[in-house]
Design a binder for these strands. Structure first.
Lengths: 257, 257
DNA sequence: AAGGTCGTTGCAGTGAATGCAACAAGCATT
DNA sequence: AATGCTTGTTGCATTCACTGCAACGACCTT
């Protein structure tokens, strides 16, 4: 739309390949040296490109700073909420969103069946970190070494007969979750409640949050709940895409796994 | 230099603060809506900005990808990382790596005490350039004339009672740092936090990066932290050697201390 | 239905970007 | 040392692309 800006931006991927000098940039842009110079100068003033001692240009660290600031100011909850509502509408079940922070996993949003109003019942409260599906998802994303450290220092309350109660089992569960990309809690926290969840990932692929759908046995069996897995994963992926600034292509009917 | 590009690039830091709609962008840019629209469109086509379902704009994946490449091209980071991890393991404290670029000093890596989870907390953010140990190290390495120029144009926020708040004191401090080859920040940024750092030098002897170890008063006193100085310097030197392609002679055991 | 907000589009005027050519600086070759 | 080559920089005339305006349309609220 804007020729000048278009040209300037075209320089970036070019420099991403590696440092380049003025003529190389001008050549690949198909413009006169002087034009390229002025574009590069402008980019330089904004710290987007950096001039090396050998006068060649490369991408600047300002880009990194910008990206960093952007993710920090991103509110997962804000982005996720509409998706959670939709999932709730589709399934009728309770939907949770959780993040990992300072050795705790806590709910930051919840859409409850029938109650459109946000009741902060469990929101903000730490989850049962050793059994909850969302907790497994978030911890499973940590590097191995750290996962081990965390598993060691946790307490393992026996909420129910199905609770995980030792580090080894927990680590094995995390490995499985990491492998398959989704998690469940089948009566591990409360005997009659099952959950199935999936991770929300940021631009760098790391899990920034996790979501889950929960329902009591009396409403749907665990097996029935599991049939919702594809839908849950699709929702989580949609949130990931939006959070990462990816454009959900209009015709992306189904994503391949 | 180029008005159009200048305006377009000015949108980026604006969006880094958070999503914004067309009018907000136009307003803060001081241009007509239609102008802002066309700039945003161009940025959008390049994937630099992303349009949310609510039509607001925010930074897009492409920017994240570029930022990623920008830091990956900084091979200091890659070389330094294992050393930082080791230093962290030895001391238990937070370790930072920073570079100087375009009038800013910013963290490009960090290894946090015990909780690498928060990995990217301060990474990408400009450091408090008038007080941070790494900033002193990098600025101290500049030629005198340039140091003076920088010192003059800086702001000197009084973060704490111990902050450096005027150019003369700052220049004196830089001279001292230059002389001794290491730097500290004793409560100059945050009252209870002390740092000690050393420079990473390239083959030509110029500082290409700086690293520091930080710890709160409550954990170790400033004096205790200073006892780590030899270790910090040795680590920085090891990184320098590797970066400069000097053989970190296999038998010059770092451990014989 | 009316009124308001906000994004989008066509258009005319002009100011800003472009390419040219000459210049400067650094380096290699002779 | 002189010459020629390469590469970055600057002043300038031309023109084209960018700008702001105003009108339109989509959507939401009352």
């Amino acid at each position: 739309m804007s020729q000048t800006v278009d040209r300037a931006l075209s320089i970036l991927p070019l420099l991403a390949e590696g440092p380049a000098n003025l003529e190389q940039v001008a050549g690949r842009l198909g413009v006169h040296k002087s034009t390229a110079l002025r574009l590069l100068r402008t980019l330089h003033e904004h710290g987007i490109v950096h001039r090396q001692p050998d006068q060649r240009y490369r991408l600047g660290t300002r880009l990194f700073a910008l990206a960093q600031q952007a993710v920090e100011n991103l509110d997962v909850r804000e982005i996720a909420h509409p998706h959670l509502v939709e999932l709730n509408a589709q399934t009728g079940h309770t939907v949770h969103l959780a993040v990992h922070e300072e050795n705790e996993v806590l709910y930051i949003d919840k859409v409850e069946s029938r109650y459109p109003v946000r009741m902060y019942s469990r929101i903000g409260k730490p989850v049962a970190i050793t059994v909850a599906a969302v907790a497994k998802l978030l911890l499973a994303d940590l590097p191995e070494q750290e996962r081990r450290a965390v598993a060691q220092r946790l307490d393992y309350p026996r909420y129910t007969a199905r609770s995980i109660t030792d580090p080894a089992t927990f680590l094995a569960e995390l490995a499985k979750v990491r492998e398959q990309g989704w998690a469940t809690d089948l009566g591990g926290h409360e005997e009659s409640i099952n959950c199935v969840g999936a991770p929300v990932r940021g631009p760098d692929g790391r899990a920034v949050a996790a979501m889950s759908v929960s329902a009591p046995n009396v409403v749907v069996s665990a097996d029935e709940l599991l049939t919702l897995l594809p839908l849950v994963r699709r929702t989580a992926d949609a949130i990931s895409d939006e959070y990462s600034g990816r454009t959900p292509s209009p015709d992306n009917t189904e994503r391949q796994r």
